[in-house]
Amino acid sequence: MKGIQNMRKRLVILFSIFFLVFMSISPVSAANNPRNIYEVKPGDYLWKIASTYQTTIQDLKLMNGLQSDLILVGQKLKVPIMYEVAPGDTLWKLSQSFSSTVSLIKTANGLTSNMIYVGQKLKIPPKKLSMQGQFVLMTREEFKDWLFNHSFTRKIGKIQQHHTWQPSYQQFNGSNHFSLLNGMKDYHVNGMGWKDISQQLTTFPDGTVAVGRPFNMPPEGSFGLQNKSRMLEIEADSLAIENLGNFDKDGNKMTPEQRETILTVTALLMLRFGLTPNVDTVTYHHWWDINTGEQVLDEGEGHAIKTCPGTDFFGGNNTTDARSHFYPLVQQRMQQIRATLQ
């Protein structure tokens, strides 16, 4: 009996040491520092969560890039929190720790300077994403958070790479993202008769990325236009990316920012859905007969094929180009992102 008691004491001491070490890693881990991420539980709905955290449904949607009121169990939501200032804290450090900004924290608390003091209680609201209707426009880092915080009901097995061809760089003025997205949606819905904009994601020359069609809906009309049953089969586990621009050799020269975004977004999708880049998981529009839905890869002669995603897309649009110039860069980016997630 005495041996068991001694063992319990040792376990308590070891746990206490571990707890103290863990809690002293950084000010962000201080005991008075609550997480600003809420994980959705059974029975939750947006009004209930908004009420709990003293915010509004609309603000919750903007903080998290929610395209509707639907939330899923296990989904992670950024929420406003009350925080007690600890030694070493600054407004900038707090803004970085809680996905906020110095300006937002000052406004939420009526602060007229950057001075804060230990023991002060601050409301810290997360940043709001740029949204218009269903469209969510994000930086690469914002998209990473969005992707890993969301829950999805559909299995994703392949990523489709497209270029818009039109609109191209000539139509982009640096601030008309939503206008171009709405124009594409109008064409897809009213011109093509589809239910929504075809693609889930659109990348822009300035390096931003927009979510359009909900991830839980397969893309529509992206491959096999004349063979509907084959089209539905291909698209059932697909996500479509439209890279704004004309990336044929006589078209637009891709900007470094858009190049970075295409690589990062593709790598993030690979990681999120447990995929490895190859011709089956990262597929080019050029490799499919648009009438029959047949995957022809590099044997396109005699078939109805497009140059999409462009004859100058990361070195070219055939499978050798993809294996030599695109997939290795995606794999490298995946390794870099993994290191930040550990």
Rank of each mutant, 00 (worst) to 15 (best):
V330R: 09
N246F: 14
I49P: 12
S24I: 05
V21D: 01
K41L: 13
R338W: 01
T266S: 15
E294N: 14
T319Q: 15
L62W: 02
I4H: 12
T261H: 11
F223D: 10
S95K: 07
Q120C: 01
H325P: 04
N114I: 05
F273M: 02
P125Q: 05
L225E: 09
L111K: 01
H285C: 14
I156K: 07
L244V: 06
M270W: 09
L271M: 04
L46N: 01
L269K: 10
V73F: 06
K61C: 06
N246T: 02
L137Y: 11
D69Q: 03
R338A: 03
S222Q: 10
H162R: 00
H286D: 13
Q54L: 06
N64F: 09
W146G: 12
P205E: 10
S198N: 02
P167V: 05
N252L: 05
E242N: 05
L60E: 02
G133A: 03
S168V: 00
Q295A: 15
Q295E: 14
L225Q: 07
H303R: 15
M334P: 11
F19V: 07
I116M: 02
L111H: 02
G274S: 00
F152Y: 15
Q258C: 10
I25M: 09
T283C: 11
A240D: 13
E299F: 12
T90C: 00
S97G: 11
H188A: 12
N243S: 10
P328Y: 15
T266W: 04
A304F: 13
Q336H: 03
